[in-house]
C-alpha cells in the first residue's frame, strides 16, 4: 500500500535563502527545487526535466551552482542558498542587463537558470573565453536556442566587470 505523508513525516529545515533565514517543514523526499518554489515561495527557479539535464533549476548552494532538482530540502539544514531572486534583490544586475542587451531572452523560461549559471561562471572565471563559456554553460538548455546571444551577454558582462577576454 502506497502511502502519503502525514504530518509526523515532515522534517523541519532551517536554511538561509537570499540572505534571510527560512524554516520549512517538508517530507524527506522533497527536492530543494520544490521546496524553494512551494514552501519558501520563490518561483523564480524553474522546473523542467527534474533530473539534472536542463539546468532550469540552477541555484547557488553555499556559493556553488547546483541543480536544485537533485538536492533534497532536508540536506540543506544550515546552508546558504541563492536563487535568481537573490541575485537581483537590488534591481537587475549587470549580467541581467547584458542578457537583455544581447537579445538573449526569448520565452524566458530557462533564463533564471542561465543567469545563475552565468553568474557562477563569472565568479569562478572572471575572464572566460568563448569556449569556456560554452563549456561552463552547457548544462543549461535553451529551446529558443539563444545560445550565441547568451555567450555575448556573458562576454559583455565580463568586460563590464573588468575581466573580458582577448
Amino acid at each position: 500500500m502506497t502511502s502519503t505523508h502525514a504530518d509526523d513525516d515532515l522534517q523541519t529545515v532551517t536554511l538561509t535563502v537570499n540572505g534571510s533565514e527560512r524554516t520549512v517543514a517538508v517530507p524527506p523526499h522533497r527536492t530543494l527545487l520544490d521546496g524553494l518554489r512551494d514552501e519558501v515561495g520563490l518561483p523564480g527557479t524553474k522546473s523542467c526535466c527534474a533530473e539534472g539535464e536542463c539546468g532550469a533549476c540552477t541555484v547557488l548552494l553555499d556559493g556553488r551552482a547546483v541543480n536544485a532538482c537533485l538536492v533534497l530540502c532536508v540536506e540543506v539544514e544550515g546552508r546558504d542558498v541563492t536563487t535568481v531572486e537573490g541575485l537581483s534583490r537590488n534591481g537587475l544586475t549587470d549580467l541581467q542587463e547584458e542578457f537583455l542587451n544581447a537579445g538573449a531572452v526569448q520565452c524566458g523560461f530557462c533564463i533564471p537558470g542561465q543567469v545563475v549559471s552565468a553568474e557562477y561562471l563569472l565568479r569562478t572565471n572572471p575572464s572566460p573565453s568563448e569556449e569556456q563559456i560554452r563549456e561552463g554553460m552547457s548544462g543549461n538548455l535553451c529551446r529558443c536556442a539563444g545560445y550565441q546571444r547568451i555567450v555575448r551577454a556573458v562576454q559583455a558582462t565580463a568586460v563590464r566587470r573588468g575581466g573580458g577576454h582577448d
Binding site: R64, A65, V66, S117, L121
Partner: peptide, 9 residues
C-alpha cells in the same frame, strides 16, 4: 560527467 552543476555535487 554531466555539467558544471552536476560536477559540483
Amino acid at each position: 560527467v554531466g555539467s558544471v552543476a552536476i560536477r559540483n555535487r
